[in-house]
Amino acid sequence: MAKQLFSHTRMSRPQYILRGVVLAIGALAFLFPFYYMVIGSLQTKPDPSVVGAFPNIANITGENYVQINERINLFQGLLNSGIFTGGVLIGTMVFGLLAGYALAVLQWRGRGVTFALALLVQVIPFQLLMIPLYVLIARDYGLADNYLGMILPFFINSTAVVIFRQYFLQLPKELFEAARIDGASELRLLWGIAIPLVRPALITVVLLTFIGPWNEFLWPFLVTKQSALQPLAVSLANYISTVAASASNPFGATLAGAVVLAAPVVVLFIVFQRYFVSTNIGSGVKG
C-alpha cells in the first residue's frame, strides 16, 4: 500500500527530503520530553542546562525513585490504578462485547436508538456530568473512597462498543446462519465463532480502553480523599501540587513518579503497536 502510494505521487528529491525533515522534527518534538523525563528521573541533582540533557555517569542515581516511593506509595498507587483499570476492562470486555454483538448481528427493536446513543455519549463532555455524578455517586450512593465509585462512570467504554460492532459487521452473515441452523445459542456463537475471529482486533480495544482509566485524573481525584485508595495519577498529581516544594530534589522525584506512571502504557503500546490500526479507531469515533 505504502509503496504504491509513493510511486503515484510524484515527489521530487527536495520534497522527499522536506518530508523526512518534517517527520524527524515531529518525532524529536514528541520524544524529547520523554527522554528528558527518564534522564531527569535518574539525576542526583537537577541539571537544567543544555549539557544536562546528556547523561553524565557521575550524576546518575536511583535515589529519586526511593524518594518518591517514601512520599507516595508507588506500589499501592499502581495497584489502585490497576484495580480501577481492570474494573473498566472487565465491564467493557463483557458488557461492551455483548452490546457490540447485539448491535451488529442481531435484529431487535431499539437497535438503531442504542447505536445512536453509543455515538452520542462520546461527544457528551464528562465535565458537564461532573457535578451531578459527584452528587449522585459520592453523596447519594455513598461510593466516595470506593473502587466501585471510581469505576462506575467508566464501566463500559462507548467507543469500544462502536468498534466491536464494526468488527462483527465485517464477519460474513452465512457463518452465523449456518451455526444457528445447527442449533447453537447466541452466546455460543459469540464466544465460539465471533470472538475468535476478531481476536487480533480486540487488542486495539483493550489498549484504547486501558489508557482511559489508567490516565484519568479528574474523576478519581474528586471521589478519593484517602491516599490509600488513590490511583497513581492522583497521588502523583497531589505530590506535584503540594509536597514537591519540600523535597530535596523535587523535579527528580516527580519525574521518577512520572516514569512509573507512564511506563506500563508505553511498554504495552510498543509491544502491541502493530495491532493499533488507524482505521479501527477512526471507525470507533465516527461510527
Binding site: P33, F34, M37, W214, F217, A233, I240, G257, L261, A262
Partner: peptide
C-alpha cells in the same frame, strides 16, 4: 497515550 499528570511533570 501517556497520562497528562506524567507529562505535566516534565
Amino acid at each position: 497515550l501517556t497520562a497528562s499528570v506524567a507529562v505535566v511533570a516534565v
